[in-house]
């Protein structure tokens, strides 16, 4: 492994964010290495959403820096960071419901190409666009659903579609915000399989409540409590960490 490959794809350096007296992100530092899934867990109200906002660019931290693929992206907006290769899924499903499944992915492919100031060629018969989109649908096993209106998919399928949309942007990192939220056991299983298959190609920062999914997927886990990272390490270490047990589960032990 060369030095550049070993360098983390994402590095949060001492992020702080306050709303008035409320200190929601406290000196958070965290890295995601290439080829790993780094899971971020924490109880409700730990400040995960605010932290995701800062990583994706919708919330500006008060201090600290975000280095993505070797570049300080702290001052860039959401769309700019996305173009640099930060793909994401949302906690509340964010797809384009009136478009077909294929169109959803094709739009992400089109976004990756740069600008979309192409006015006259019909997008739905743009073979290049569609073929590339189909590859991503294949990757997540949704080829059969390509023609369906995205709004008509089941909840679990919508979550999978979100992953396909994120993939189509050719991301250097995927930021997955509770991809298993609200999915049934079978759908969770399917998502775990999909994500597991992608792990070698695309590093991920996974925010998730479903602990069994987290322990199946994560190479490393960080625990966020009250805006602070209280522990970070391999799953086995986190499982045994008394501070995590105390803060996260109030001493109970089904981690």
């Amino acid at each position: 492994m060369t030095v550049s490959e070993a360098a983390p794809i994402l590095e949060l350096q001492g992020l702080n964010k306050s709303y008035g007296a409320l200190h929601v992100t406290k000196d958070v530092s965290l890295t995601v290495r290439r080829g790993e899934i780094h899971a971020l867990i924490g109880p409700n109200g730990a400040g995960k959403t605010t932290l995701i906002g800062q990583i994706s660019g919708s919330i500006a931290p008060n201090s600290g820096a975000i280095v993505f693929a070797g570049e300080d992206v702290s001052s860039l907006g959401v769309a700019q960071r996305a173009r640099k290769g930060l793909g994401r899924s949302f906690q509340i499903t964010a797809i384009l419901p009136a478009f077909s499944v294929l169109e959803n992915v094709a739009l992400a492919v089109q976004a990756k190409d740069g600008h979309s100031f192409r006015f006259f060629k019909r997008a739905s018969s743009d073979a290049e666009l569609n073929n590339r989109a189909k590859v991503y649908l294949e990757m997540v096993g949704m080829t059969a659903r390509a023609g369906l209106r995205a709004g008509d998919l089941s909840h679990g399928e919508k979550r999978v579609l979100e992953v396909a949309i994120a993939l189509a942007g050719g991301p250097k990192l995927m930021l997955l915000d509770e991809p298993m939220a609200g999915t049934g056991p079978e759908e969770t299983e399917r998502l775990v399989t999909v994500l597991h298959g992608l792990k070698a190609k695309i590093p991920m920062l996974l925010i998730e409540h479903d602990m069994s999914a987290v322990f199946q997927l994560a190479d490393r886990i960080s625990v966020l409590v009250y805006g602070e990272i209280i522990a970070s390490g391999a799953p086995e270490d986190i499982r045994r960490d008394p501070a995590v047990r105390e803060a996260y589960l109030g001493g109970e032990s089904d981690l």
């Binding site: 949302f90 992400a108 976004a111 994120a166």
Partner: peptide, 12 residues
């Protein structure tokens, strides 16, 4: 349909 999604795929 969804502005946040557009930004997340890199389109302002």
């Amino acid at each position: 349909q969804n502005e946040a999604r557009m930004e997340a795929i890199g389109i302002d």
